[in-house]
Design a protein around this nucleic acid. Sequence first.
DNA 1: CCCTAGATATACATACCGGTATAACTAGCT
DNA 2: AGCTAGTTATACCGGTATGTATATCTAGGG
Lengths: 183, 183
Amino acid sequence: MRVQNRPLTPAARRVLQVAGHLFYERGIGCVGMELIAAEAGVTKKTVYDRFGSKDALILAYLRTRDERWRDFVTARLAVFSDPRERVLATFEALEQWQADEPRRGCSMVNACAELPDPSHPVHRAAAEQKAWLRDLYAGLVADGTLADQLLILHEGAIVAFSVGGVADAAAKARAAADALLPR
Amino acid sequence: MRVQNRPLTPAARRVLQVAGHLFYERGIGCVGMELIAAEAGVTKKTVYDRFGSKDALILAYLRTRDERWRDFVTARLAVFSDPRERVLATFEALEQWQADEPRRGCSMVNACAELPDPSHPVHRAAAEQKAWLRDLYAGLVADGTLADQLLILHEGAIVAFSVGGVADAAAKARAAADALLPR
DNA sequence: CCCTAGATATACATACCGGTATAACTAGCT
DNA sequence: AGCTAGTTATACCGGTATGTATATCTAGGG
């Protein structure tokens, strides 16, 4: 699997942006390379010259989306210094994130569902994202079990919102976290 | 979309059982009708004569799995009469369920990820399953927000376990539920 | 001036998938 | 005895997917 370190060409940027929308909204399996190329105003050859394979493009999509998400959370956290407020801010960030996105759940969870082979790199990427959030919590609450419980609330809010149709899931998860945190 | 009400023929039962394993472990998109027929010791014609289409077979798979899951939970709940104990028993049931299953998450969530069209019947089936659990909680705790929070913990435990690699996720969700429940 | 990287355009190879068609065999019910 | 439902066996259709091949164009840097 090729890894892209060099800066992306303009065409590659367009491909990645288009793939980001299509993969997330329609699902990885329902979007072909032909469609991505066409929507990006590019030929299939260019897509393969830049990314090498569909798997590599999928991984690039997940990594860029993950980066956007982490930056988003980090920025909303930076406003607070009190650990308790920082924890609660992650749930407010989730609420705001969900308000601007189609109700399609977690891209990492979805990708793992579509590519079930555990040796596929998307599983590593997904585990890393979840570990990042868990470690963020662990740095704020000291108690490891509590950190896991906060992660559970966070992931549960995403599923309850996107599949379960629960209104204000993130806010309710925030309230639950508030009750769990020591005072 | 055809609906099966008549009792299944022996061949149809085998098909459904095989499809259950393959769809869950390898993902719906990665399993073709040809493979299902072969593994069930049946021809493709029989599969289509019994189920009509792949979509209908997917739905039958989800419904039977859902029924198995609800029966499992209901049985573990029946031992207790105290509402608080009954709530906590749902998390113990999840823990036992996960112990006997491959770490592949929720079949409903996975199906929604693989078939993103919201008008596809799997989305209704998934929403119904989550609503069933939420209503179960709502009948035990009276407070609607708390019922939603318990659902969030439940769903979060599944994702944290299967994608996040969190050990004892169900037990930790149970402990969190225990802390949230009024005493 | 020319070489290279990035791009276009188009056709193609290969493989698989969902679904259909046809014909024949078997067991049970009437 | 004969009809029907369920089944086997096999071949096929049309569509689509990933990925490759070939040839051409363009712009920038040495």
